[in-house]
């Protein structure tokens, strides 16, 4: 078990005329090693939820445990929490601030109180992991880099903390096709390196279907369903009630069914669809 959330409720501006409840009784259990997609309409509570996971938002009601860190404790170990849960925010490149790439990336590990030597080692490794040349970029200003490079520097700053859980809010929004593929490949690489648990908030149903083991579908501050992509994307009633889309692959399958052609399996990825249509000739 890496994350255990029970009955989480959160209200913005409580006890004011502007009070808005963003989460209502959310419970979620994430195992170490899972790649979890979080989907849902704008305003369904996705971002509020993930910001709880490294205490960017203070717990109002409910319980959260991340490994052995208990956020309900009187003084939760926030330093340990933030070393455990790495958070890559939306458009993280806007949060770069320091004068060189090396300084920017070392900000997180320095806050963990590591030795200078350890910091340097981690920064080098993080920069190389995101696919940049350490010697070439370390003394450059992050602001001179291209958009895709900036995003990778921002991610390097998070993974230099070596978090066991990596949380990314819309990591591929606004990227061109190559940038998207690079970031998705990078997430897989990081998952294999030292962040076995990955949680991604995304509006891109195709990439969620391709990459995630499980999907949490948020609607109106609740988790409408937490299940495999297959269970979620073939549940028409659920999708229409929560105003969600299904991936292109599933749309093709649904069109095929409408035309009277049923498949032996229920594919959600491109490879699964091609296999279902060609192997065994399920016609």
């Amino acid at each position: 078990m890496s994350i255990e959330v029970k009955d989480l409720t959160y209200t913005y501006s409580p006890n004011t005329p502007y009070a808005a409840t963003a989460l209502r009784g959310v419970s979620l259990h994430i195992e170490e090693g899972e790649y979890v997609g979080i989907i849902g309409k704008t305003g369904s509570g996705k971002s509020t939820f993930i910001q709880h996971l490294n205490a960017l938002i203070r717990l109002q009601s409910g319980e959260i445990k991340v490994y052995d860190i208990d956020l309900n404790a009187k003084k939760p170990d926030l330093k340990k929490l933030r070393g455990t849960v790495g958070m890559v925010m939306q458009y993280p490149e806007y949060q770069l601030f320091d004068e060189t790439v090396e300084k920017d990336v070392s900000y997180g590990p320095r806050n963990l109180g590591l030795s200078e030597e350890e910091i340097r080692e981690r920064v080098r490794e993080a920069i190389e992991l995101v696919g940049l040349d350490y010697e070439e970029v370390r003394d450059r200003s992050p602001f001179e880099l291209s958009g895709g490079q900036k995003r990778r520097v921002a991610i390097a700053g998070v993974i230099a903390m070596r978090p066991r859980i990596l949380v990314l809010d819309e990591p591929i929004a606004g990227l061109d096709p190559r940038g998207k593929q690079e970031i998705l490949a990078l997430i897989k690489k990081l998952k294999n390196a030292y962040s076995p648990t990955v949680i991604v908030v995304s509006h891109d149903m195709d990439s969620v279907a391709e990459n995630c083991d499980k999907v949490a579908l948020f609607a109106d501050g609740e988790i409408a369903r937490f299940a495999s992509p297959r269970e979620i994307f073939y549940d028409d009633e659920l999708l229409s009630r929560t105003e969600m889309d299904c991936p292109s692959v599933v749309k093709v399958v649904k069109e095929l069914e409408r035309l009277g052609k049923s498949l032996p399996t229920r594919p959600v990825t491109k490879a699964e669809l091609v296999a279902a249509l060609t192997v065994g000739e399920g016609v």
């Binding site: 309409k41 704008t42 105003e243 969600m244």
Partner: peptide
């Protein structure tokens, strides 16, 4: 680019 599926 910044919209959810329904918004798009």
């Amino acid at each position: 680019a910044m919209l959810d599926p329904k918004g798009r």
